[in-house]
């Protein structure tokens, strides 16, 4: 059983307070939607949860059973899709997934990686450089990358950004699967995305 907890979490950039005293608790099969105006700290919160940013105060605890995981152990259980996360444009889709899986210590075959690319609707484009992809295709590839590691905690920032109707259906499917196997946290301003969460919190109040 995996759980994610924040205790008295606070973040300042210089003297500007983004949020303070944020207490969250999510268990397996739990989902949370974070909303708020632009600049309210949604992306910042997601970055803190996945360890890309340090909080100014408070802490993030990810527990697996009774054991509190280290920062590195936690990262191995996380999947992240966000606009700030760029893939290597000069590499092909397949090369991106191959490199990122190998550097994380995962030995997936070319066939397995192609299947992951297939699953996000990019079949036949695996050998094209990522710089030639549209923003929607890049978003799909980010999902392939996030799902590569079968994440127990999936963090999505603006999950349907740049996606067409098929892409939004893909997100629906990914979200449903994630809610069965782990924790889902997503940050959005789209009203249609509110349905993805069991709970909704609003930042910036």
């Amino acid at each position: 059983m995996i759980s994610l907890q924040t205790k008295e979490l606070g973040k300042w950039f210089g003297t500007r307070k983004i949020f303070d005293r944020l207490d969250l608790y999510l268990e397996e099969k739990g989902s949370l939607v974070v909303t708020g105006k632009n600049g309210s700290g949604k992306t910042t919160l997601l970055k803190i949860l996945c360890g890309l940013l340090r909080p100014t105060k408070g802490e993030v605890l990810i527990n697996f059973g009774e054991r509190n995981l280290t920062r590195q152990e936690s990262r191995n259980l996380l999947g992240l899709v966000m606009p700030d996360l760029e893939l290597y444009g000069e590499l092909t889709a397949l090369e991106n997934l191959l490199f990122l899986s190998r550097i994380r210590g995962l030995n997936l075959s070319r066939g397995e990686l192609e299947m992951k690319i297939d699953q996000v609707g990019l079949a036949g484009r695996e050998d094209d450089p990522v710089f030639s992809f549209s923003s929607g295709m890049k978003q799909r590839l980010k999902y392939a990358l996030a799902l590569l590691f079968d994440p127990r905690v999936l963090l999505l920032d603006e999950p349907t950004a740049n996606l067409d109707e098929d892409g939004i259906l893909l997100v629906d499917r990914i979200v449903s699967q994630q809610k069965e196997r782990g924790i889902l946290i997503l940050a959005t301003n789209e009203k249609a995305d509110l349905k993805y969460g069991d709970r909704v919190i609003q930042l910036g109040n």
């Binding site: 191995n76 590499l91 090369e95 490199f99 190998r102 550097i103 994380r104 210590g105 995962l106 079968d150």
Partner: peptide, 23 residues
């Protein structure tokens, strides 16, 4: 899926290969 262990040397070599390919 469990993360398989491969040595830091092999993983560093993958980063080197990626950087050389990009370069």
């Amino acid at each position: 899926m469990a993360i398989e262990s491969s040595s830091w040397a092999i993983r560093s070599a993958w980063l080197l290969a990626k950087d050389l390919k990009s370069e």
